[in-house]
Design a protein around this nucleic acid. Sequence first.
RNA 1: CGGGACGUGGCGCAGUUUGGUAGCGCGCAUCGUUCGGGACGAUGAGGUCGCCGGUUCAAAUCCGGCCGUCCCGACCA
Length: 568
Amino acid sequence: MRWSRAFIPTLRDDPAGAEAVSHRLLVRGGFIRQLMSGSYSMLPAGLRVRNKVRRIIAEEIDAIGGQEFLLPVLHPGEVWQRSGRWDLMGEELFRLQDRRGVDHVLGMTHEEIFTLIATELKSYKQLPQLWYHFQTKLRDEPRPKSGLLRVREFVMKDSYSFDLDAAGQAKQFEAHYGAYSRIFSRMGLETVAVEASSGAMGGTDSVEFMVASPAGEDLVARCSRCDYAANVERARSRIPDVIDGDPYDAPQRFATPGVRTIEALGRFDGGAPAENQIKTLVYLADGDPVLVLLRGDHPLQEQKLTDHLKVRALRPANDDEIYALLGAHAGSLGAVGVTGLRIIADVALQGRTAMTTGANEDDFHLRGVNVGRDIGIEEWVDLREVKAGEGCPNCDGELEVYKAIEVGHIFKLGTEYSEAFGAYVLDESGRARPIVMGSYGIGLGRAVAAIAEVFHDDKGLRWPVAVAPWQVVITLVKSDPEVIAAGERLYAELVVLGVEVLLDDRDERPGVKFNDAELIGIPYRMTLGPRSLAEGNVELVTRADGATSEIALEDVVKHVRGLLDSVF
RNA sequence: CGGGACGUGGCGCAGUUUGGUAGCGCGCAUCGUUCGGGACGAUGAGGUCGCCGGUUCAAAUCCGGCCGUCCCGACCA
């Protein structure tokens, strides 16, 4: 491609308001343009990168037995009603009606439609199956952000596995685990596979592939010693026991004027340190009130609570709702003597005695509370959000916590969808069995953005060769006929070799060309000008490290073959 | 949905407080000089000032409503 004919609209200034580095650089480098909130056009350079990512994914999924499909984006609403997700998905699901007033859905994922096709499987002899497609997903995100990292419309590779039993499903899950590791490593991304919450996908087990990045929206807890890693939505940790004071015969009420916070009660004369307090939170789970108890210094991990309750909408109760339920305001709440309300406690409170908590009367607290004796706790659940520095649950190492981008997510779905749609096969004994499913997703745009988040410097992007829009740029430093001729010869040689080359034949000053090449991040630049030409050389500059060398023109082909060996 | 900010040539911004013929930088076009690290000069093209309504002799500027975008939070495979 000749740069003078290519549409690569680079910009000198950052786009207004853009926060994520990848977003700024992808816009400035002429890879993407925003159409509206959470919706982006791919420009030629951007599409070239995305297609590289797409091909890597397709190769690796094909390698584990995948067959490519293409399913529609427009779905009948009835299908989503049958799976139950018409109600479950809430406002994130785009819905519309056709001219006859029939409900439709814009697909946010394709479990339903693939399962519908899987109803044609009739025998265990047809299993296992692994089906996938690359298709646009639409999600009415409440807040799209960070450029391509969180959007309302994006293309995802989603695959679906179909097996006779859990053992077969586990095998396909493992195969995906391996394929995903290879996919991300081929893109240059270092990923950590973490235990994750399955959220609205349902199912039993799920693993996310995470790329450490300050632009990430997830928090990963990872052991520095063993291989334990989990999304904080799921992560557990080991914490030291607290030695409780002498038990009381019964809780003792005392006045705490003006004390409204855990911290204030810690400082209050006659109060208690945070780890000796019980924090009482009131939540509404699909409208039903729930009391949630944690140690005073422990934050609630809301996703853990959502997962435990298996509800759609969870939110903290507001002041009025709290007062109506407990007769006191936040800051003086407690669960002692409360009946008729669902009470869920974090496991760190198990066996604790001589605790202090609110008395459900403003400006009063209780001390000497024995958790097991004085509170009617029905459910003990791990609800605490782990902190960096706490102990690994699996070894004596320590956890670190860092931000990460979720670039892939694999799920064990079980038989939820196959049962809903009647996807059954007959087994060897002639018995009908629901197909055991898995689903596995990678968002193309998010992967591109994640790579950009990792591979950039103050000059712009530095694509790994495997995903670069072009592998080599030939920069003609002067528009002399000899230079142009030499450049075109070199260009032709490389094209024949199968190299993706951009020939910068623009009538621009060298500085502009160098800066643009660095901004869009082409891995190798060959500079050709009168100076090098006189010596029969080209200058080769590696974008990643700035390394510069002179190469004899006749050796270039051989040299490039060596450089790009890995992608040929 | 709560909080905050913004909307002015393709891009980045000033001008709004105090109403009076719309400006700057980059980019773009033509010519000339330059040109191995974002050149310089000259000339020029390009704007419904987000939209609708109101106030006024007069609105980018004041008032009301709406729309859009971004950031923080809530939310979210």
